[in-house]
Design a protein around this nucleic acid. Structure first.
Lengths: 204, 204
DNA sequence: CTTTGATTTGACCAACTGGTCAAACTCACG
DNA sequence: CGTGAGTTTGACCAGTTGGTCAAATCAAAG
């Protein structure tokens, strides 16, 4: 194990390679479906060498998750109370959609965990995410009460945004097969903009 | 292995118990994350006894999947070309939502597979489901061309219905944690009806 | 070049996994 | 009750898995 001095050049490179490889492997096979050997090989290391940098398979996974969650929630945090409501929400949707296109492995890693009951994530969902959702749900509710967007259950509104955007990453295999030659991300931005614009634009 | 005579009473009972147990285990741990022993114990059998009824772990999984896919696609098949378009679509949404509430394990089993790249399902998606989606996408397109519902990319419309409804089963762990005491399925039907009604009702 | 700490690896281990098999047990039926 | 087919199981096996360890190799500072 490296001492807790400042990391050497080799340590930085190898730890990064391991996390990158682990993201690939974990996101496509889930935690139990992935083997340390797979990750090591994908990172270009031997298994004992990998375990020289991380104490266990679970430690790799946890570090990956910790790093992921922050960036994952950033778009929601960025929802600006002082902005124009409809445009804020539409921008949030597009940001989330872009993340599905640019970081599909992260999305699938998260999905894998939640589908299996969030055994390793329950705590952070019940604390950090819960608080954030409460806050943003109240913001949405305020906008609705002020008549600036159409009424809808604010939490379900958030769920629907997550669901619709992450679907393109999580169900990528299905979506691409059914779309044939057409790239799903060509029409998706416009489809989702239309959907939320029609749903949320205040009625006259 | 039982001969291919008519199944005995014991065979029927045990095979059913195995499939029920397998649905539980596979849907919460994925294929690779599940062990034959787990399934056997959940079915109240010993491992060799379970393997007396099914030749392998994969055989159990395949039988489960085959049984699932048919019922899974039935609601979409039921989309009636001769019905009132908006009501047909809304009814489809509600049917799918009910399936998420009543058969969440089936939904998660399916999600697990697709998230991991649909290795065992690619063929049936590329054939049966592809054909069905093409047919129903054309039906939707026809309704739009006739001005009976608002325009939107028909395939993305289908994806959004799947995504929004299955989310309540697949991300159940997250949704329930964030909703607190409130049952997600209380407000979900109305939320989704509102969403699709606003989006699809033809503009004057 | 030497030394010292960082890095890498082959060999190994115990636990677990999917699956087999012969022997034992149970049950329906004559 | 006996008998043969249907059912169940303990013991076992080979392959895989996460993880360890001592020994070997490498890199950089003196």
């Amino acid at each position: 194990m490296p001492a807790d001095r400042a990391p050497t050049r080799i340590q930085r490179k190898n730890r990064a390679a391991i996390l990158e490889a682990a993201l690939d492997v974990f996101s496509s096979h889930g935690f139990r479906g992935s083997t340390v050997d797979q990750i090591a090989k994908a990172a270009g290391l031997s298994k004992p060498n990998l375990l020289y940098y991380f104490p266990s398979k679970e430690a790799i996974f946890n570090e990956l998750m910790a790093g992921l969650l922050d960036t994952w929630l950033d778009p929601l945090r960025a929802l600006n109370p002082d902005g124009e409501p409809l445009e804020e929400i539409l921008a949030y949707v597009q940001r989330k959609l872009q993340m599905s296109r640019d970081f599909p492995r992260e999305s699938r890693l998260y999905a894998n965990e939640i589908v299996q009951g969030a055994p390793r994530l329950h705590d952070v969902i019940a604390s950090d995410l819960y608080v954030l959702v409460e806050e943003k749900a109240q913001l949405l509710q305020g906008w609705m009460d002020a008549g600036r967007i159409n009424r809808a259950h604010p939490k379900h509104l958030l769920f629907s945004i997550w669901s619709l955007t992450q679907h393109y990453a999580d169900f990528d295999a299905q979506v691409r097969t059914l779309m044939g030659d057409e790239d799903p991300f060509d029409a998706a931005p416009k489809y989702l903009e239309t959907l939320y614009r029609r749903m949320l634009t205040p009625e006259s």
